[in-house]
Simulated scan of single mutants.
Amino acid sequence: MPSTLNTYLLSCALLMAALPPRVPGAPLADAPAETPAGETSGEEAERPQTDLLSGSPLWSLAVAVVERHDKEFENEFPAQQVDHLDEYKIQSPPAGCRHNLSKESCLQRLVFGLVKYTVLLRHAEAVYPSSSVPSETKFYISLLSSLIREKLKHPEQVEVLSSIQEQQMLGELENHDTFHKKMTAHSVLQKLKYFLIDGKHALARKERANSRTANYMLL
């Protein structure tokens, strides 16, 4: 059965996904009315039928928010190609989950990677204060990070960043050229999108392998 934290995180995420994008300075919309007794809520209908971490809707919700930056990028820089964002490198980018890692090591890397991207997104927030994409992305990857931590056998072993390391990461993104700053902000979001997609697929493969092993042991 899904844990209490898992259920709470999914409820928060699905509620946020149902709300329209927040326009800076606009008043908050009224909260949705409670579901009448005996009726099935949309949240219950969308809740995954599996407790597999890779089956959590948080992955898709986070990617969907990040992908909005593609449209914002094209609107601001119609002559530029999204693929060219890879030219704007991030020093020491978060490492992904390799196939030869154990599931525990994979989860450790995913959590630490999300921690690093949470810091890197501060650059995007500073460069694009009127865009809701960076802040909403931070919200979803925070929920996802909490969900992954719940699956760890040793969550205390997750690497942490000191304030000095965080400032160093942000300092590496700084540039006096405004155009370069904007390109780097979009590059951070693009790399995060692929980190999420690749991370989910790698985790799904490991969970399928573990499931096959468990079924074999039962034979």
Score class of each variant (00 low, 15 high):
146 S>R: 06
29 A>K: 12
75 N>L: 04
36 P>R: 06
92 S>E: 11
81 Q>T: 10
41 S>Q: 00
120 L>P: 01
81 Q>K: 14
146 S>H: 10
78 P>V: 08
89 K>P: 04
129 P>D: 01
49 Q>C: 09
87 E>Y: 05
120 L>D: 00
122 R>M: 11
142 S>N: 03
75 N>I: 09
114 L>K: 01
35 T>M: 04
113 G>P: 01
90 I>D: 11
106 C>S: 10
28 L>M: 14
66 V>R: 05
13 A>Y: 08
50 T>W: 10
41 S>M: 02
12 C>R: 11
144 L>G: 03
110 L>G: 03
48 P>Q: 13
140 Y>D: 03
131 S>D: 13
67 E>K: 15
111 V>E: 08
113 G>H: 00
41 S>F: 00
91 Q>L: 11
48 P>Y: 13
80 Q>V: 14
19 L>I: 00
62 A>I: 06
45 A>I: 08
63 V>Q: 04
96 G>I: 09
82 V>I: 15
92 S>T: 05
14 L>I: 09
133 V>I: 06
51 D>Y: 07
80 Q>F: 15
141 I>V: 12
77 F>L: 05
12 C>T: 12
17 A>S: 04
97 C>G: 00
47 R>Q: 13
58 L>K: 03
62 A>D: 04
52 L>M: 15
99 H>Q: 12
17 A>T: 02
83 D>Y: 10
69 H>E: 06
124 A>C: 09
26 A>T: 12
36 P>H: 03
21 P>Q: 01
15 L>Q: 06
135 S>W: 08
107 L>K: 02
72 E>K: 08
